[in-house]
Amino acid sequence: MKNKYSPGDKVQIMQRNQPGHVRTPIYVRGKTGVIERIVGSFPNPELLAYGNSGLPYKMLYRVNFKQSELWPDYDGQADDTLEIEIYEHWMAPA
């Protein structure tokens, strides 16, 4: 399976409302981060959780966000970050 994004690429997490076993928390939706690493391809948890095979597999990445991007009033240090796993179908080039 080919990866659409590479480490260092800027991506924006999609802002969509989707019920079910979604692994993209609301607090990162619509936010812009940087691909930290390619984790690999995994069964799609949005299908797997309901007794399906999870096929086709989805590419998973770790995305690094500045805390100030996630929380405009973040009161820690300017270089504090958060890293989280995001599936390819939840992101777009930024």
Binding site: R23, P25, V39, D79, L82, E85, Y87
Partner: peptide
């Protein structure tokens, strides 16, 4: 002072 905090949200397959 000066130490960066990096939070890891263990939300999927890792």
């Amino acid at each position: 002072d000066g130490k960066q905090v990096r939070v890891h949200d263990s939300n999927a397959d890792l």
